Amino acid sequence: MDIRALRYFAEVVNCGGFSRASAVLHVTQPAISRAVRLLEEELGVRLLIRDPKTVKPTREGEVVYRHAAQMLRQVRQLTSELTDMKSELKGELRVGLPPLVGSTFFSDVIAQFRREYPGVDLHIAEFFSSHLEQALDDGEIDIAAAMLPVDLERFVVQRFAADRLMFVVNPGHEISSCTAMRILALKTHPLVTFTKDFKLCGLIEDACRAQGFVPSTVGRSSHLDLVLAMVASGMGITVLPRSVIERTNIRQFVAVPIVKPAIRFELALVRPRQSYISQGCKAWLELAAGALGFQISDSFICQAGAGTLIPDR
């Protein structure tokens, strides 16, 4: 079976069409169509349904896509392992970072990695925490930073930070003089927050529901600057991780700890249990550990044997 044909087919499914897949793959559309047609003939099944506006996999196509994703991931791991056998550090490393986590914790790590390992093609993919697990499963990224919890049956984690949530308000706001405030403040004060793709939003909403109410959300954005602009305009108050407040220049606002209960969470680097850890990935881990002050656990860098799971104890 032609690996290239599987790659073309998988990209057509990912993009929902031949023309978009052609742009991503830098391969002509007729060449992709021909490869997919030959794959259908080899397997004896129809793989795609071609509608006027999109292309979708058939039921048989969904099965082939699932196996193709696994095979392509194995090919990438094979290439990484062979590359690592050479003396100079080269290859490709794909890191998934949620927007807030990436800008808060990893901007210096990215810059240092590019300086020290120019031979490694570093790709930073911005994924919301809610999408990271699927991206890791699909082999789109090699390692990711995420808010815990994640599925420990599928992933190994390396914790790198503990965090808590705090209110952020204008200096003139009535709770700006408080030393601490309960989440119940959102019962009477409108909330400005991020889009629902952010795992942070679920954390806030769950905390409010536990107190018997749903917050009144008056504005959402996927950009921190716009969220803070809405707070500055007086639309409402927001909730941010302490790490973001400490590492971001937002001195014109007042941060008030949330208590009774304090809303805490952990951040971790995450990788699939059955995955090859390239030398580039190990270099990334070492730089991150130095910058963020954590010690890399043996369980996180233990390699998976063929068909075995990595112990997480």
Results as ranks from 00 to 15, higher is better:
Leu292Gln: 11
Gly290Tyr: 10
Gln295Tyr: 00
Ala289Ile: 05
Gly280Ser: 06
Ser299His: 15
Leu287Lys: 07
Ser278Met: 06
Gln279Trp: 00
Ala288Glu: 10
Ser275Val: 07
Gly290Ile: 00
Ala288Val: 04
Gly293Arg: 11
Asp298Gln: 14
Tyr276Thr: 03
Gly293Asp: 11
Ala268Glu: 07
Ile263Met: 12
Tyr276Pro: 01
Glu286Trp: 05
Gly280Met: 06
Val270Ser: 01
Ala283Asn: 04
Gln274Tyr: 08
Pro272Val: 00
Gln295Gly: 06
Glu286Asp: 15
Pro272Ala: 08
Ile277Ala: 02
Leu267Lys: 10
Gly293Gln: 09
Ser297Ala: 15
Cys281Tyr: 02
Phe300Leu: 00
Leu267Ala: 08
Ala268Arg: 07
Ile263Asp: 13
Leu287Asp: 06
Leu267Cys: 10
Asp298Val: 03
Gly293Val: 01
Gln279Arg: 15
Ala283His: 02
Glu266Lys: 09
Leu269His: 07
Lys282Leu: 12
Ser299Phe: 05
Gln295His: 13
Glu266Phe: 06
Ala283Gln: 09
Asp298Gly: 10
Asp298Lys: 11
Gln274Asp: 12
Gln295Arg: 14
Gln274Cys: 08
Ser299Gln: 13
Cys281Asp: 04
Ser275Tyr: 04
Gln295Ser: 14
Val270Pro: 05
Ile277Ser: 02
Lys282Arg: 15
Arg273Val: 06
Trp284Ser: 06
Tyr276Ser: 07
Gly280Leu: 06
Gln295Val: 14
Glu286Thr: 06
Leu292Phe: 11
Phe265Ser: 12
Arg264Ser: 14
Ala289Pro: 13
Ser297Trp: 03
Glu286Tyr: 02
Ala291Asp: 15
Phe300Ser: 01
Ser299Gly: 09
Ala283Ile: 00
Leu285Asn: 10
Phe300Ala: 03
Ala289Gly: 12
Ala268Gln: 08
Arg271Gln: 03
Ala283Met: 02
Ile277Arg: 04
Gln279Ala: 14
Ser275Thr: 12
Gly293Met: 01
Ala288Gly: 10
Trp284Asn: 05
Ile263Phe: 06
Glu266Ser: 14
Trp284Ala: 00
Tyr276Leu: 05
Asp298His: 12
Arg271Met: 04
Ile277Thr: 00
Glu266Ala: 13
Ile263Lys: 14
